[in-house]
Design a binder for these strands. Structure first.
Lengths: 336, 336
DNA sequence: CTGAAAGCGCTTACAG
DNA sequence: CTGAAAGCGCTTACAG
């Protein structure tokens, strides 16, 4: 392990007494060279400690063997399992993974889709400039969040229907007055879940209120304080995210209220802490491993030239992932 | 935005009526070309929508403008803020970030340090084969976890002393019998925290017990069940991680015990949920943003040839980040 | 200030 | 089965 100059294919070729072309072939398609040659090359590789320079190979082959994940906030715990799933699936087909925050400058963002370092994109942000996204010349899939102006297939759960599951659950427990703590105003997930909440409440003939929020713990706590100040407190609460719901629940407890005795709370996502919180959180489960894996498969298929699947006649995006309500301890019968 | 062939520097040069060398210079060092030439080139760039092919530039310059982060578990919430900090800091100096799981095959792992796609590594895993790590020919910094057999500088808090802070806090509250829920057997952080716990307990003349664990929520819950079965239950518990501590606390509550009435619990890390849990968690704060930023600065300095800072005479690693005890609601006076 | 030419380290038709 | 040569898309001494 002494420090040595980087060995390149030419060094191996010289040592083995063959051409670089033969070394290249012996390494990438062993069957295409003679057994004796193969042996000589392999010995030279071992003796020199040669490892291929991927950057050079990538340039020559005009592909990077790399996937780019773009997310609006790398420290969001909702994403971490998706990252892990994407990494695992990508790795299994020989691709490396780059992760970047999608909220970087417009110019830098534009470059990402052009610079020859990635050959596919998994986009977790529905809030980017469509001109930038559509300007990229790379296979791309929208995961979780989406934007109708992006010209790319999407993958995710049915957020509208999922919100309905939460409402139906609360109504089934006897709650007649419902509160929704919203996500960020412009966020497509928030908009869809909110609409799903309103539609389901109306369908069930329940009273519906909406408080602002932004998916965070703190916004949930803030909503709880506001809720506590109400004259007629809704008894069933549906939060746009688990973090928000956990913030809501913990602030309620801090204020001396009982969950679910005084108020039932439902979250969204089923992050790891949801079933460890006290009380454990009733929520909508999003299968994040499955989402990450499916996204990679889809984008890899696109890289290999599979034609995009189009939305069917009803406008339903073709790639639906099943979400489900998980009943836990934060919801119970409405107080008498 | 019609689909068009990728435009390269030659196309720009032709349109502007100059050589590719001049285009290259106009773009990377505008002052080195004449104003009129510069203008012609810029117009041609705009007209063609040219964007540089980074892969080609990287190969020619023999650097990748990219940092590689290696972590043993991408879905671990402790890492997410570090990732975000690294990304932010790297981005501010023009570097992209690749993230990879460090628990991939040995061969694939070895390649990462050789393949010309990264020019620096931030390593968050102390459990890799030192031969592989030392075989890499790239500036590398160990962050959080470390391994004495790695030939690279490290950055992190003083885990031994931090464990002492937790113990002193519990002893100060009157706890005389202490329990530690350990991290994974072989993990250097776990070993160091455990030793810090034992040394501080002994220094304080407190009784000390250690249960196995692995940093996870579930292992904390398991330890709580085991604790509950004890005849003489320790009243002060120090867990090797926040997740473990939250698992311990929630299982205690589930078993009908009061925290901190019956048992005080201290965690380690100060993850986002620590202050939102009910009760909020007393823990050791690790400044993860600072850690991520400092790691990037250090590895960038190494890339620019700054000589490694050596450990001083006392053997103290030079790059210490301050950890601190954060007192919250999960700890209180020992029961009478 | 600008251009012709070499070269970063590979792969791949093409020819034999 | 193997090699000579071209080329992936850039940058950079070198010369003028």
């Amino acid at each position: 392990m002494t420090a040595r100059a980087r060995v390149k294919i030419k060094d191996v070729a010289t040592l083995a007494g063959v051409s670089t072309a033969t070394v290249s072939r012996a390494l990438s398609a062993p069957d295409s060279v003679g057994p004796a040659t193969r042996k000589k090359v392999m010995e030279a590789v071992k003796a020199t400690g040669y490892r291929i320079n991927s950057a050079a190979r990538d340039l020559r082959q005009r592909r990077a063997r790399s996937l780019l994940i773009l997310a609006p906030n790398l420290s969001n715990t909702f994403f971490s399992r998706i990252f892990a799933a994407v990494q695992e699936e990508a790795s299994s087909v020989g691709l490396t993974v780059q992760i970047s925050d999608s909220r970087i400058g417009r110019d830098r963002l534009l470059s990402l889709g052009y610079d020859g370092r990635a050959d596919g994109i998994v986009l977790l942000d529905g809030g980017l400039d469509p001109e930038v996204v559509n300007g990229w010349r790379l296979p791309l899939i929208q995961l979780s969040e989406w934007n109708d102006a992006y010209d790319a297939p999407r993958l995710g759960i049915d957020n509208h229907a999922a919100a309905g599951l939460a409402v139906d659950h609360l109504v089934g427990l006897g709650h007649r007055s419902l509160l929704h703590v919203n996500g960020p105003e412009e966020n497509v997930l928030a908009i869809t879940r909110r609409q799903g909440f309103l539609d389901a409440a109306s369908r069930n003939g329940a009273e519906a209120t909406v408080f602002p929020g932004d998916f965070t713990l703190e916004s949930g706590a803030e909503a709880a304080r506001r809720w506590a100040g109400l004259d007629n407190r809704p008894t069933g609460v549906f939060c746009a995210s688990d973090e928000c719901a956990l913030g809501f629940v913990s602030e309620c407890i801090r204020l001396g209220c009982d969950v679910p005795g005084d108020v039932s709370v439902v979250g969204f996502d089923d992050i790891d802490f949801a079933d460890r919180f006290v009380p454990s959180l009733t929520t909508i489960h999003q299968p994040r491993l499955e989402m990450g894996r499916a996204a990679v498969k889809q984008v890899v298929a696109m890289m290999q030239g599979t034609p995009k699947v189009e939305a069917d006649a009803t406008g339903t995006p073709p790639e639906r992932i099943e979400a489900a309500l998980v009943k836990r301890a934060s919801t119970g019968p409405a107080p008498a």
